[in-house]
Design a protein around this nucleic acid. Sequence first.
DNA 1: CTGAAAGCGCTTACAG
DNA 2: CTGAAAGCGCTTACAG
Lengths: 347, 347
Amino acid sequence: MVSQRPGPNLSRIATSLGVSVATVSNALSGKGRVSEALIEKIRSHAAELGYVPSQAGRALRTGRSGVLGLVLPDIANPLFPKIAQAIEFAASAAGYGVLIADSRGDISAQTEAINRLVERGVDGMVIVPRRATRISAASCPVAVIDTASTPGNTVAADHWQGGREIAAHLAGLGHKQILIIGNNHESNVQNDRAGGIRAGLQPGMRSETLWVERLENETGAGCRLGLAEKARQGFTAFAALSDLQALRALTELQQEGISVPADVSVTGFDDLIWSPVVTPSLTTVRMDMDTIAEIAVSALVDRINENGTREGVMVTAETERVPMQLIIRQSSGPAKPAQKTSEMENL
Amino acid sequence: MVSQRPGPNLSRIATSLGVSVATVSNALSGKGRVSEALIEKIRSHAAELGYVPSQAGRALRTGRSGVLGLVLPDIANPLFPKIAQAIEFAASAAGYGVLIADSRGDISAQTEAINRLVERGVDGMVIVPRRATRISAASCPVAVIDTASTPGNTVAADHWQGGREIAAHLAGLGHKQILIIGNNHESNVQNDRAGGIRAGLQPGMRSETLWVERLENETGAGCRLGLAEKARQGFTAFAALSDLQALRALTELQQEGISVPADVSVTGFDDLIWSPVVTPSLTTVRMDMDTIAEIAVSALVDRINENGTREGVMVTAETERVPMQLIIRQSSGPAKPAQKTSEMENL
DNA sequence: CTGAAAGCGCTTACAG
DNA sequence: CTGAAAGCGCTTACAG
């Protein structure tokens, strides 16, 4: 016995209309030559019956599943919703479904995740790689989203330029001493962002970088960064390399009684969900995820179409850079002249 | 011409070993009766060739795609990473892939998203419904994750009990006046949480509920909630119905110079990514997403297996409730006796 | 413009 | 214990 599909299939439509399945298929796909009248008749009948083409049949025949894989270093990453949403939207528009795979845990999990997707027969995949991982060619087209500094990537936000935007913004506000706050000095993305900030400093400005590898201590409470001390040392701007760090900096400063943006400025990266919601709302730099996703997906789709034999190739040699956009909100303001704090407050 | 698959198929293994495809299939699946020796031989040869079974072939034959759909009201929701990760993990363990679909936008988008998944041939789907949406039976098994108060759901965190945990915690700290902060009074989840808090109040305690429908104003900056005023009115505990609201409350209070937890306590729900990271870290209540996902997926898998004809049925009549866990961090502390603020500070 | 037929890769009764 | 054969639903050259 062979299992039943619930809905009608091409054959049912064909018999019921007294035509061949080939004609039905052609009429529905619009490919072969079928008379206008017949096309009309077939399509309306199919719609009436609620015909849904079988992906399995189509996939078996064409060798294409119509599904793209999305591999993420850690789905728990707060940036994930934006990535997933953008990729799903772009893929959907291109007629593809999106299968997710989480490569959480050790680095081998990434390979396993990729393999799982290959086994499911994806036509291609978008990979946001772990730290400094190199993707060993999977057996299907791959688009990597990381940062332009990593060779072989397909598309990435221009994190370096984003850093420059932050630096220019802070320079314009008169800040001289910038504390850059990151949490992972092996991350290409964070290094690019930090590099961009440093490169964008004007003469007379200086920066220092604080890498805080751990976000929480054993009790599950955040570790302090000692930012009040830094403020006392003369830093007036805290440029976090992600909005999570920025949030952490913001709340720590507030808790210490240092006012943002009156006393010091705080900026982030990514425009995550909470950034507009906190008080003061967070100045940050936003990736254009929709564009990035569209580029990644269309690169993938192009490769899938040109490439009958599903070779596993990196999609591009040159990374396409998508500019980041500065979002100025309330957490950044004019720098307070150093050491004159008390006088100004007495005005 | 028919398109080529890259890897070997059953037929290649069969010819190369001089046996039939049926035997290879049986040996690999362990179903039919095949001698130990042959099984061994076939398996090692298949492994050597790097054989990956074609999902399309299998799906066409069995009528099962081996894929589950995941429909979310809005992927941008900060809770999404946890849900997706848990569902992917549970599905993966059960041998299923997960196809995502975002039903962002209007309510009809949810139906479209469901249809898209049906077209892709998912064997079942997990739906986290929009506000008060009723899922009109899709043509495959469906598991709904919402809240136990909604009839027809499959599994849900016990939001009501979570609310009681918060109330008990605050009662134990001596708080008398609780301000409940929500952002969507049509949300079943939020209503349950609020109801639980109210039900858990001890004699002598009172609560008031503040619904803030909008999170941001036109400029993209957060609207103030006026919490300082509420604190002056005597509220010593701010129980937000989600961690995003809690974060908002926390930063607003800090900005107003009200110290947390010294002056007032703040609690949230969900234990989102930033909760342990902010200063003070956030007391909250956590869902057991892994358990919820496991229950949802196994309910789905059971229904798929018993149900040859892919009928679209709600998976359960009675919702299974999974307890929530109180996570006590630094944002909640003993209540300050009302009106004695200044005296105490002078000690 | 329309149809008959092959075949994608797999699994499953059934026969030997 | 092993194999021959049918068939899941589709698309695509090819013949008419």
